[in-house]
Simulated scan of single mutants.
Amino acid sequence: MAYIDFIGSLHNATKRDYISRVISDDKAECAAIAKQYDYDYWDGERKFGYGGYHYDGRWKSVAEKMVEYYGLKSGQRILDVGCGMAHLLYEFSQVVPGIEVKGIDISDYALKHAKEEIRDSLQYGKAQEIPFEDNFFDLVISLTTLHNLKVFDLKRAVQEIERVSKGNSYIMVESFRNDREEVNMLYWQLTCASYYSVDEWEWLYKEWGYTGDYSFIFFE
């Protein structure tokens, strides 16, 4: 199990007004709408989520880094748990022609509006009940998804990722290293159910038998 950051620079490129998030609207109401993971979360106003989730090529560099790090080749299989509109999976398919990509998500809206070129490779599925057999994928990834699960489902999801992977996996979640980042995270997040510091996440991974790689995004 190793810490490696593929996402931090992409995350930090967005500027966030944490205070405005909690005083400009009814945060609880916005969170309730966001957790439906429907139009408002993806393509509605920013207060409900992404504020418009459109393909712009930003995930290509992430795919390239992962391909190099994991030595991915044509004919191998990748699963994205919580794939959303699958922009990263699309980039994998472009960076490594012939690689097999699969994605699962609980958002029907995201699946219906996913990148058209790989839409047929996506399906509805829960992280805690991954619908594939043991040791099926050469790489399993999950980005900004597992922190949305309560601890009992979170444990199952981490163990499911371990189960369907041949050995390589990568989980990235929101976390914090100090009080300021914890407060900013609570101000900004809309869908989180698991709020853990870095050392707590690392302890949970070891406790649940996770052997893959991991990283975090922070709200500095």
Rank of each mutant, 00 (worst) to 15 (best):
R177K: 14
A127M: 00
L143M: 12
V164Y: 00
L143A: 07
D179Y: 11
S165T: 10
I161G: 01
E129N: 07
G209T: 11
E174Y: 05
L190H: 07
M172K: 01
M172G: 03
Q128A: 12
N148G: 06
I141C: 03
L186T: 14
W203M: 15
S165C: 11
R163A: 00
R177D: 12
S197T: 01
L143H: 05
S175H: 02
E160G: 01
D134T: 07
A157R: 03
L204K: 14
T211H: 15
T144N: 12
M185H: 09
Y195W: 12
V198D: 06
F152T: 14
V151E: 12
T145P: 05
F136D: 04
H147E: 13
F136T: 06
N168Y: 14
M185C: 09
W203K: 15
G167L: 13
T191H: 09
K155G: 01
K126R: 10
S194I: 02
F152V: 15
R177T: 10
W188D: 06
E129M: 11
E200S: 10
K150F: 13
F132W: 00
L139P: 05
K166Y: 13
D138I: 09
W201F: 13
I130C: 01
Q159K: 12
I171K: 07
E181P: 06
S165F: 01
Q189T: 13
F152Y: 14
T211D: 15
S169L: 06
I130T: 01
V183Q: 13
K150C: 14
S169Y: 03
Y124T: 05
L154E: 03
F137E: 04
L204Y: 14
L186F: 13
S194H: 00
L186Y: 14
F132E: 03
L154P: 01
F132C: 04
Y195T: 06
E160D: 08
N148M: 08
F176G: 02
S169I: 02
K126G: 02
G212D: 07
Y195A: 08
V173E: 00
Q159D: 09
D153Q: 12
V151P: 08
